[in-house]
Amino acid sequence: MSDTGRILSLHLAVLAALLGLHFVAPPYHHANLARVMVLAVYAMGYNIAFGYTGLLSLGHALFFAAGLYGTGLTIQLAGWPAGPALITGLLAGAAVAGGLGLLALRTAGVSFMIVTLMFAQAGYLTILYFTGYTRGEEGFVLPAAARSIGGLDPTGEAARYLLALALFAVALAVNLGLVRSGLGRVMVAIRENEERSRMLGYDPFRVKLAALAISGLYAGAAGAAWGWLFGYVGAGFATIQYSILPLLYVLLGGAGTVLGPFLGALAMFYLIDIASGLTDAYLMVVGVALVVLVLFAPKGILGSLRERWLRWLP
């Protein structure tokens, strides 16, 4: 089988398996998987910036929150219908990421991490500052009636799962298309050697800006979908911890692999789920996972697999 054939069948098989699980998974895991798929979209976006382009951002929670609040506030305060509100959230993620990129991409490496961290922190504090509108830490619940789009009601478990799956499928397809496109290859080239790609005539700033904006679009889509599907909007999603989570997922699953973010999100979600059954010290699990990963498996699950056996993995 050709590489393209293998890649297509692998990703279609994953989507088919997720569709199959919709019919057989027990309710508890069914609900979990819907969440994991939305988080995986967020992590995929993170991976486009970090895994493929080498931009280690510590501020992605800002883009997720832009999507979440872009949707939540337009519904809650402006009384918009859910459809336009969702699109607003999606675009808010990309716009915030693009705007931040214009400033932050003037720096690199450690400075880039700190700058993104600082902007995200300022964003979080801003949400708290306008508690009158955003309800701050406490957040607000989007009423079910305001969330339906022309009869499409996302409040039922089944609809929620299928909508999350649809979003995940689109995100996966776009991601796959992106990394196999010219832009995707230039992104990797810049990650590997920025100077050389500049010498070959590419403009690293523009490519990185594009990667960050696409990454923000993903994060915004995940945030908007989170608010729409699960109906809760709160400042907790804008904290540093939500910038760390996608990093963790991507590191665990494998940076620079298309399926890695999903695999990482799935594994981490269940690791925390199982750990919190045994102990309430779930942050400990996150901490130990981070340290162990950077020490012993810096390439993550799929990254290691690709290195050994599956050379064709995108």
């Binding site: 996150v286 901490g287 981070l290 340290v291 950077v294």
Partner: peptide, 11 residues
């Protein structure tokens, strides 16, 4: 950075 974030959570 990633490792010290982990240490932060552990501590």
């Amino acid at each position: 950075i990633v490792a010290t974030i982990g240490v932060l959570y552990i501590v």
